[in-house]
């Protein structure tokens, strides 16, 4: 395999890991450029969108060599800051040393397969985040506690469903449903718990706030396609959550209406 192809594969793999784990568009492009240029390929052009990477490169003053390009499709995205930080370190090492491409591939594989926090740890911290988020919006202690439990269970079930390869649209609808059922359950326990406050807290572990901010950020920086794609993704997630929550709220409304009729 020629050195050109090897460098191409290393660069696209590094970009893929970064993009899959929530790296910003400009950062992915920057990393790919640096990786390629460090091995003497001075003509590098890359086009990154959240759903794919396009990369082509060539050497200066090498008319006999052919130009190489590579397209990589990205299908799933989540946020994993640890991997972004590791790729950043890797890229610095690769650029500043004469690391061989085989070593580079091994290092990248290791990063790609790195374990994250366990589902239990994530759930506890998701619960903490929900509980404190409810407090940020002036809820009382009981509401915060219910938001903690709700957030924990929602994070756990959402991660479980996604690890079972459930499509994220469906998983988010179910997550929204579970969240609202729990919130209704807690609100029936004591009158001092208001259902909205629990939903505000617990829903934050699901809503695409970061995605929508990144969408605007990409658009401001001129990555218009990437910005639109991210905004579209954020909208789909918001719709799925609202669908789950809205359906359960509607069912509660209808069932209480039926109860009323039956009582008369």
């Amino acid at each position: 395999m020629s050195i050109k192809k090897e460098v191409l594969i290393v660069a696209i793999y590094a970009g893929e890991i970064m993009l899959k784990n929530g790296g910003e568009t400009y950062r992915v492009e920057d990393t790919i450029m640096r990786l390629c240029k460090s091995r003497g390929f001075s003509y590098v052009e890359t086009f990154v969108t959240p759903t794919g990477i396009f990369l082509s490169m060539d050497k200066k003053n090498a008319p006999e060599e052919e130009m190489s390009s590579y397209i990589k499709r990205i299908r799933s995205r989540n946020i994993n800051l640890n991997k972004i930080s590791k790729i950043n370190e890797f890229s610095r090492n690769f650029v500043n040393s004469s690391m061989s491409t085989e070593e580079a591939m091994q290092a990248l594989k290791k990063i790609d397969e790195a374990t994250s926090y366990s589902n239990l740890t994530k759930s506890i911290f998701g619960g903490l985040a929900s509980g404190f988020f409810a407090l940020l919006f002036q809820s009382n202690l009981l509401e915060s506690l219910s938001a903690f439990i709700t957030g924990m269970l929602v994070t756990y079930s959402l991660n479980y469903l996604l690890s079972r390869k459930m499509p994220f649209f469906l998983a988010n609808i179910l997550g929204g449903g579970i969240l609202t059922l729990l919130a209704i359950f807690f609100s029936y326990m004591t009158p001092s718990i208001h259902i909205d406050k629990i939903i505000i807290g617990a829903i934050m572990v699901m809503v695409p706030g970061v995605a929508i901010t990144n969408a605007v950020r990409d658009s401001i920086e001129g990555d218009l396609v990437a910005g639109l794609a991210r905004a579209g993704e954020a909208f789909i997630i918001a719709i799925s959550i609202a669908f789950g929550v809205g359906a359960v709220l509607k069912i509660r409304e209808i069932s209480s209406f039926i109860m009323e009729v039956l009582r008369q």
């Binding site: 946020i79 800051l81 998701g126």
Partner: peptide, 9 residues
């Protein structure tokens, strides 16, 4: 901090 753990920081 809760969200940082959720995002695997």
């Amino acid at each position: 901090i809760g969200f940082a753990v959720l995002f695997n920081s």
